[in-house]
Computed example of a mutant assay.
Amino acid sequence: MADSARLTMTPEDFFVWQRDQDELDERVDGQPVPRHRMMTGASMQHDRATVNVIVSLGTQLRGTSCRPTTADIALRTSIRGLRRPDVMVECAPLVPDTYEAREPKLVVEVASPSTTTIDQTRKVEDSKRHPTLASILLVETLKPQALLYRRLGDGWDIETFEGLDAVIALPEIGATLSLAEIYDGLSFPPRRDLAGAG
């Protein structure tokens, strides 16, 4: 009975219900789904990259109408969908006691091994539905690489950034993100030498 009741929750009912939960949920096809289903929490790599993005964007955007948010703030992707990106940049006047972004411009998802497929497929497609969203950035944690989806008219362009020297321009929010900043303090597993394998 509880599950069928959840199916009919409005977004407003969902936010009221969420206040009494121990963990953050997303709303997918009208149903609450644990944000990191089957995860025991974010890894140190994931957490450090997420914090680095927030610190860099927060510093650059101070004094502007834009600000970074954490996964506590939801992105409405459809009538029955609410997602919680790792980082989002909202460019609208601050409204106290609200639980969702009104004019998001950028979504950042930091990949975890168990969520990479979801982040790169369904969550990206869901996020593209928000009318004010200009860019979606997917950040890897096993190597210094990021994938940027940028809205161009009615479609989306995709650009890959690799290596710590790469810099991602984000003119829609008046900021940049260098991979050196994103990965500050992180280390990466050594690459396997396939040529030497025998």
Rank of each mutant, 00 (worst) to 15 (best):
M39S: 13
T121L: 00
A49Q: 00
T98K: 13
W17N: 13
T40E: 01
R67G: 05
E159I: 09
L142E: 02
T64E: 01
D126R: 06
E172M: 11
L179I: 07
N52G: 05
E26M: 07
S187R: 10
R191F: 03
I54N: 07
P189F: 15
I173A: 04
V107A: 15
R37A: 14
L133R: 07
T10V: 01
N52E: 09
N52L: 07
V87I: 12
P144W: 14
R129K: 12
S56K: 15
S78N: 04
D13W: 07
A180S: 06
N52W: 02
G185N: 00
R129Y: 02
Y183Q: 02
D126P: 07
T160M: 15
I118A: 13
G198C: 11
L7V: 04
G155P: 07
V28E: 11
V110Q: 05
P190G: 00
T115K: 14
T70D: 00
T50L: 05
L170Y: 05
Y99S: 14
I54M: 14
Q45S: 11
R76Y: 09
L179F: 05
Y99E: 06
A195S: 06
L106I: 11
A2Y: 09
I182P: 02
Q120C: 09
A5I: 02
L152Y: 10
L133Y: 02
T77Q: 03
F161M: 04
E172I: 10
L137E: 00
V108P: 01
T141S: 11
E103Y: 10
P113G: 15
N52K: 10
L106S: 07
A74F: 00
V16Y: 06
C91D: 02
H130I: 00
V95C: 02
P171R: 09
P11W: 12
T50C: 12
V51W: 05
T121N: 08
R62P: 00
E172W: 08
D157C: 09
G155W: 03
V139H: 02
G30W: 03
T70N: 11
T59Q: 08
S65W: 06
Q60C: 13
M88Q: 01
K105H: 12
P171D: 03
G198D: 12
R192M: 13
L194C: 10
V89A: 01
E23Y: 05
D154F: 05
L7M: 10
P34A: 15
I158C: 11
L82T: 12
T141H: 07
E162D: 08
W156E: 00
T176V: 13
K128M: 15
S114L: 14
D29Q: 13
L7K: 10
T121P: 05
A101M: 13
R102H: 06
A2D: 04
A166L: 10
L133T: 04
P189C: 15
